[in-house]
Design a protein around this nucleic acid. Structure first.
Length: 164
DNA sequence: TCCGTATTGAACT
DNA sequence: AGTTCAATACGGA
């Protein structure tokens, strides 16, 4: 069974991001380039609950894009395996402007050897930016990869004041 | 069960 | 210093 998400666009100076909400929280976020947007504007009823989340999510997103640390995050409804959720949870513990290597993340979840699996989980991350998969660099401080495009990763890091 | 992965560290040019 | 290679954990087909 496929979960249906409530899709809400977020206009920023960098383009229109798409957020998707489930009954439990923010479930997905897409970069502007994905042409997932511009759909037959399904103006369904947006529960007040979700409007509240969206307000927080939008503020958090714009803060990050502006190079400032968000004060607050909306609840996240991460759909994935236990391992993935574990990784994503670890990612959220990385503070703004800080970077970690895949190896360190692996160590943080008590699987020091699962470095590549961590990479896989990052790639499967449904919520970039808010779940800071872009703050993960390879051990030799190289850029690695990024789902939404490497330009985004570099740009986001630069805005956080990270140099490499 | 086999294959690919957003890695890593060591061995080899 | 750049490159190749095997190992490793996990998810998808």
């Amino acid at each position: 069974m496929k979960r249906s998400f409530l899709e809400i666009p977020v206009a920023t100076r960098d383009g229109v991001f798409i957020t998707r909400y489930s009954e439990k929280g923010l479930a997905e976020l897409n970069f502007p380039n994905s042409r997932t947007s511009a759909r037959g504007a399904k103006k369904e009823v947006v529960p007040a609950k979700i409007r509240g989340w969206h307000r927080v999510a939008e503020a958090a997103l714009k803060n990050i894009l502006a190079g400032r640390a968000p004060k607050k995050f909306p609840p996240l409804d991460l759909a994935g395996t236990d391992f993935q959720k574990c990784v994503w949870n670890a990612l959220q513990k990385i503070s703004f402007g800080e970077t970690k290597s895949y190896g360190e993340v692996a160590a943080a979840i008590r699987n020091p050897k699962a470095v590549r699996a961590v990479g896989g989980a990052c790639g499967a991350n449904p919520i970039p930016v808010l779940v800071p998969c872009h703050r993960i660099l390879a051990a030799n401080k190289k850029i690695g990869g990024f789902s939404g495009g490497l330009e985004w990763k570099r740009d986001l890091l630069a805005r956080e004041g990270v140099k490499f």
